[in-house]
C-alpha cells in the first residue's frame, strides 16, 4: 500500500516535470516578450513546476552522494536538506520526502529565511540570484554540505552543484573540486548525467 502510494505521487511529479519542463523556457520568454497578464499567470505556474523539478532533483542527489562518517551524529541521524529562500521548493520537498528514507536515514527538510543562520545541512539549496548572500553562505556554511545553487558562475564561488536551464530542461553542472573540498564523494553515474563537470573526474 505504501509503495503504491509513493508510486502514484512520484508518477505525478515526473509526468508533470516531463510535460512541462519542455515548454518552460518558451513560456517564460513569451511572458516577458508580450507582457500579457494571462501569460504572467502562466509564468507563475511554470515557476512552480521548475521548483517542483528542482525539489525532486535535490531529493534524488542524496542517492549519488557519499558524505563522510562525521557528517552524521548517529547511524540513524536524519539527512537534513536545508532550503534557503525558496519556500516553494521546500514545500515540494516536504511533500516529496514525507515517509521516505535515504540509505535508512529519515529526511528532514529545513526552511531557512533570508536572514536566518544557515544550519548544518547535508544538502543546502541556495535559491535566487543574490550572489552576495550566496557567497556569504558558501564561506560560512557547514563544512560537509552539498551546496546546490541556481546562479551562473556559482561553481566558481564554491558551489558543488549548480542548476542551469538547458534546452528547456532543468539540468545541472558539477564542480568536483568543491565536492572534494567539502569531503563529498559524487557517484560517477551522477557525473555522467551532469551537463558539465569541472575539475578532475
Amino acid at each position: 500500500m505504501k509503495r503504491a502510494r509513493i508510486g502514484v505521487s512520484r508518477r505525478v511529479a515526473v509526468s508533470a516535470m516531463r510535460a512541462c519542463a519542455g515548454v518552460l523556457l518558451a513560456l517564460v520568454f513569451a511572458l516577458y516578450a508580450f507582457g500579457i497578464p494571462d501569460a504572467r499567470a502562466q509564468a507563475e505556474t511554470d515557476r512552480a513546476l521548475e521548483q517542483r523539478v528542482k525539489a525532486a532533483f535535490l531529493y534524488r542527489f542524496a542517492d549519488f552522494v557519499v558524505w563522510p562518517e562525521s557528517a552524521f551524529a548517529k547511524p540513524d541521524s536524519p539527512l537534513v536538506i536545508a532550503v534557503v529562500g525558496a519556500d516553494g521548493v521546500a514545500e515540494h520537498l516536504r511533500t516529496l520526502t514525507s515517509g521516505r528514507t535515504v540509505g535508512g536515514r529519515p529526511i528532514e527538510i529545513r526552511r531557512v529565511g533570508a536572514s536566518d543562520p544557515v544550519p548544518a545541512a547535508h544538502i543546502l539549496f541556495i535559491s535566487g540570484s543574490d550572489r552576495t548572500r550566496m557567497r556569504e553562505i558558501l564561506r560560512s556554511g557547514p563544512r560537509n554540505s552539498l551546496v546546490v545553487t541556481e546562479v551562473d558562475g556559482a561553481l566558481d564561488q564554491g558551489s558543488v552543484i549548480n542548476f542551469v536551464i538547458a534546452e528547456d530542461r532543468v539540468r545541472f553542472e558539477i564542480s568536483l573540486e568543491s565536492a572534494e573540498k567539502r569531503g563529498l564523494r559524487l557517484s560517477s553515474r551522477l557525473l555522467a548525467v551532469a551537463r558539465s563537470v569541472r575539475g578532475n573526474p
Binding site: 516531463r18 519542463a21 534524488r60 542517492d63 545541472f172 553515474r189 551522477l190 555522467a192
Partner: peptide
C-alpha cells in the same frame, strides 16, 4: 539499468 539509474533520476533521456 544500473548505469541508467541517474539518467532516470534526473530525467536525462540523452544519457
Amino acid at each position: 539499468g544500473r548505469s541508467s539509474v541517474a539518467a532516470l533520476a534526473f530525467d536525462d533521456q540523452a544519457a
